[in-house]
Amino acid sequence: MIITVASGKGGTGKTTVAVNLALATDAKLYDCDVEEPNANIFIKANLQKIEDVFLMNPSFDLNKCTFCKKCAEFCAYNAIAVLPSDILFFPELCSGCGGCKIVCEHDAITEGKKKIGEIYHGKNEVEIYQGILNIGEARAVPIITKLKSYVNKQNTSILDAPPGNGCPAIEAMHGADFVILVTEPTPFGLHDLKIAINIVRKLEIPFGVIINRYGIGDEGVEKYCKEDGIEILMKIPYSRKIAELYSAGIPFVKEMKEWKRNFIEMYEAIK
């Protein structure tokens, strides 16, 4: 079973939920927040690199090139500019689609690999896989896709999604059996939760909501979920102790044993 923990708004407690759920249920954990991976701060596994992630990039053989501009005209990302006797290539705009190589009639384009990130694996109390995007690279999705190739549907796999409702978050939800949306009871939390719910519904994945820092803010999230028939899986109260444990990189199920049972019960209910 694949469970993705997502949120819309950042900083609502996705990683907290994903880490504590994985520890409580002895599941494998996949940190799909490849721009800012944090899960291993809590798991503390000795991570080993298992794979590099590459994006295909064209290179141009100017001896064969006739400067016909077919490649530049085809490129949907404006990554190629053809001058009278030179080619300008903008790698940061290239998606690696390979189209330029297909349209070139003079065999002047070959593809090379550009490294954009890495996949790591390690084990402490639970097994963890983590993707990481290189600094200055824009495309997180290929790394999440690669990371997901290590997910085995036979096991319980917890995917910690990146914040937001953009393509990296959607890629982390794609193919999941269940999505847990973590929110906080504030107007910002509610606004972004509504967007995330629209996406999960569009992807036709069953989902439920966890309200974190319950007690701060207002009643908006709870009211919305009740009116819309959305299941609230768990409420984690705002607690100075949980916040302090978080700041020090300690998963709270380890120090507050009653919460281990709460996570197991929630997992059984989801199953």
């Binding site: 927040d33 721009e35 800012e36 940061e92 995007l133 997180a140 914040p163 937001g164 953009g166 990296p168």
Partner: peptide, 9 residues
């Protein structure tokens, strides 16, 4: 936005 990828750059 949060992160370091495309919309942040």
């Amino acid at each position: 936005p949060a992160g370091i990828g495309c919309p942040v750059i």
